[in-house]
Design a protein around this nucleic acid. Structure first.
Length: 421
DNA sequence: TCTGGGGTCCTAGGACCC
DNA sequence: TCTGGGGTCCTAGGACCC
């Protein structure tokens, strides 16, 4: 059986761990730049704040209900996630960390009663040790465990956040209940097309012809269909090395000037190079993209990306930035209001197996130079040493007006507990 | 005025090989 | 006038996830 453990309202719950005074009150977490709502407590959902909505559009609701608002604090969420995953890992070695707030566990050799008992222990231990509430769905396949977790979350009073699909009857009942657009792997587009075919529930989808599914939804859709039919098709996936690393940002304002965009792209390239060095990898190709604000229908739109194959593998700030700027030169067109840009590095390889190019002409000093830069930045704070082509005055222009402390990741932010005698 | 960021997989079609 | 068959690799674009 597969168990999907899914943290409830994860980011909002993380904020509340250290602010127990906010229990029972509406809490939301905003994306970078304090742009959109990306996590909502149950209370915030109840007052009608939609997921993903731009914050300015719900300002009245915020005021009216005294919603507690937080800027995204990813170091905190990442650390809380590690704590939850460590606990889950103690229950079984067969685990797949699926996202920051979800993990699949394979539970073997338990009868129906023991299974229920074991899952309850998991729920309680995670809650007691981290204060993060979860929903747990259990079923014979991964896709069905997702459905089960959905039910657990939707009916907390009936389920106590735990739901198990074991019999064929339960499987069919659950699938007939779940709307097609809520099924894992069915996004906006496919839901629309499926509804046009008269498919409204997960159950309807399992009854479709394999031929149609294969033709319109590729093998991915076929695998999902089988998994929902109760035939184990999707298995736990082992952690594999990342294939890409990206640094992309929406700007706090529109940029029209080439030099401004170039500075941003340089900084994103440096960030990618730093991420590469941190995991001891190099890259051999990069993509740079720029884009205007696609929400502004009144302005001319322009989006392009450019891919460059590098002549050698590298993780040097200088080299990655150099090629990123070459790519930018290919696609930058004056006259547009740019709102977003990014650098993505591909073809990652371990940095010790760095292959020498036939036409090797790279500067061997890059490696000790980068080591020195990393050391200085580690000692004197992030971004003390930068490239001359980066904005030296810029500290961090991201809007983060309501950032919570780094309770678990920053020594100066650790909370003090006062005990009365 | 203000709309996130970082990933994955699959397919079709073009270029190229023998 | 007649023009093969079987591959691989690469990339853009489309779909999805949290």
């Amino acid at each position: 059986m597969f168990a999907l453990v899914d943290c409830n309202n994860f980011y909002a719950s993380c904020e509340r761990v250290f602010r127990p005074d906010l229990n029972g009150k509406p809490v939301v977490v905003l994306s970078n730049n304090d742009g959109c709502v990306i996590s909502r407590s149950t209370e915030a959902k109840a007052i009608g704040i939609p997921m993903g909505i731009p914050a300015y559009q719900v300002e009245d609701l915020f005021k009216q209900h005294q919603v507690h608002i937080f800027s995204a604090n990813f170091p905190l969420y990442g650390d809380m996630s590690n704590r939850v995953m460590d606990i889950l890992g103690n229950f079984t070695p067969n685990m797949e960390i699926y996202s920051i707030d979800e993990a699949f566990l394979r539970l073997e050799g338990l009868n129906s009663e023991d299974l229920k008992r074991q899952v309850t222990v998991i729920y309680k231990k995670v809650y007691k040790w981290t204060n993060i509430p979860t929903s747990i769905g259990v079923a014979p396949t991964k896709a069905l465990s997702k459905v089960a977790a959905h039910i657990a979350k939707k009916f907390p009073k009936k389920t106590n956040y735990i739901y198990i699909i074991q019999t064929e009857e339960q499987r069919i009942k659950a699938l007939k209940w779940i709307k097609i657009e809520e099924v894992w792997g069915i996004g906006l587009r496919f839901a629309k097309r499926l509804k046009a075919e008269g498919i409204n529930t997960g159950y309807d989808f399992t009854q479709m012809s394999r031929h149609w599914v294969r033709k319109h939804m590729s093998v991915t859709g076929l695998r999902l269909q089988q998994d929902l039919q109760g035939i184990p098709t999707l298995d736990l996936e082992s952690v594999q090395a990342k294939k890409n690393i990206a640094t992309t940002r929406t700007f706090e304002k529109n940029y029209t000037n080439y030099d401004d965009v170039k500075e941003r792209v340089t900084t994103f390239a440096v960030a990618c190079a730093e991420k590469l060095r941190k995991q001891h990898s190099t890259c051999s190709s990069i993509t740079v993209f720029i884009s205007t604000n696609r929400e502004r229908k009144d302005l001319p739109q322009y989006r392009r990306s450019f891919y460059i194959q590098l002549p050698f593998a590298t993780h040097s700030n200088i080299e990655v930035a150099h090629f990123a700027v070459l790519a930018l030169e290919k696609i930058f067109k004056p006259g547009y209001y740019y709102k977003r840009a990014g650098v993505i590095v591909h073809e990652l390889a371990p940095d010790d197996s760095c292959q020498k190019s036939l036409f090797e002409n790279r500067d061997e000093k890059q490696i000790p130079l980068m080591q020195a830069i990393d050391k200085l930045n580690a000692t004197y704070g992030q971004q003390k040493v930068r490239l001359g082509s980066q904005d030296l005055d810029r500290i961090w222009k991201m809007k983060q007006e309501r950032l919570s402390p780094g309770y678990t990741t920053k020594i100066s932010d650790i909370i003090t507990v006062h005990c009365r005698e």
